[in-house]
């Protein structure tokens, strides 16, 4: 099947009347995503792409039965919007915007845990279950339905990996963008386990990068999984103390180097890949 989103998900868009919200909602609808409505305070009663707009998340949930939300808002409004959605009962939340204050995400994460909701992002390209639903800003040309899951901190890497899987005939079950920020709504260990529980995902490609400890913390999970995990880590070249584009991609002191991460993952049982070309070869060897 897929994880987190599928064709039955009822999706609302927070910030549907804004430029990015409007543009990407149309792309998502054209892809076949079940977008049921949107929320923008002060614009309740309007319509965007023939979908109703509400003033509050609670009204949208009540009228449409929405259970998933995608946030397209300026970063300073994300914290309140996310907490509003979580308190209104949304169980899966995709936070697209970049440049969200880190302290705000600490709050959002706590709220999500307290209410049993899953958040991905911020600073994510989103999530796609090919052929079923596309939430976020990912271009659909790289994706095709299939049997390999992907989870990555980077949007561009997600496209490249999916493109590789599509061209080699494996296709993807679901592709999850965790986001490029230092503190994330969900991390590798949590998403990997959802793939483990999905009968139709036959292998997972996880793509990490320098900085932080989320890759290392996935190691224990990988040891518990039956589904094989392939691992790539970006930033082997990166000198310490320099932030590589993503707010979270920085080697601090001796912590968070790419080599250390890849070694730890390999030790835990993941299959390391050095380039995209290695992925189909490893999958073939594993008999996926």
């Amino acid at each position: 099947m897929a994880i987190l989103v599928n064709k039955d998900s009822k999706v609302m868009v927070q910030g549907i009347t804004g430029g990015a919200g409007k543009f990407h909602s149309e792309r998502m609808i054209v892809y076949g995503t079940n977008i049921v409505g949107g929320v923008t305070p002060g614009k309740g009663g309007q319509e965007v792409h023939h979908r109703p707009v509400f003033d509050t998340v609670a009204e949208c949930v009540e009228a449409t039965g929405a259970n998933v939300s995608v946030i397209f808002l300026p970063p300073q409004f994300v914290k309140e919007a996310a907490i509003e959605a979580i308190r209104a009962g949304i169980k899966f939340l995709v936070v697209i915007p970049e440049h969200i204050p880190i302290h705000d995400m600490l709050h959002v994460r706590r709220e999500a845990v307290a209410h049993g909701a899953t958040v991905i992002g911020g600073n994510t390209a989103g999530i796609i279950s090919p052929g079923q639903a596309n939430l976020g800003i990912m271009p659909d040309i790289a994706f095709s339905p299939g049997r390999v899951g992907t989870v990555s901190r980077s949007g561009s890497i997600t496209y490249y990996v999916a493109d590789t899987l599509t061209r080699s005939g494996y296709g993807e079950s679901t592709c999850v963008g965790l986001g490029g920020d230092p503190v994330l709504g969900s991390t590798f260990d949590e998403i990997l386990w959802k793939f483990e529980e999905d009968a139709d995902t036959k292998a997972v490609v996880m793509c990490g990068e320098i900085g932080g400890v989320y890759e290392e913390r996935a190691c224990e999970r990988i040891g518990q999984m039956k589904t094989p995990v392939l691992a790539m880590i970006g930033g082997m070249f990166a000198p310490p103390g320099k932030r590589m584009g993503h707010a979270g991609a920085i080697v601090e002191g001796k912590m968070g180097t790419a080599k250390e991460k890849l070694d730890a993952l390999a030790q835990a049982g993941a299959h390391p890949c050095k380039t995209f070309n290695d992925i189909p070869e490893v999958l073939k060897k594993l008999g996926v």
Binding site: S154, E209, G234, G235, F237, G245, T275
Partner: peptide, 24 residues
């Protein structure tokens, strides 16, 4: 490059094939 992740991976390849990246 477009995308921070792809930029890092591209630079890793530069290094892998014997070059040295001048920048991210």
């Amino acid at each position: 490059v477009n995308g921070a992740g792809l930029a890092m991976t591209t630079m890793d390849l530069v290094k892998r094939y014997g070059g040295e990246p001048a920048n991210f």
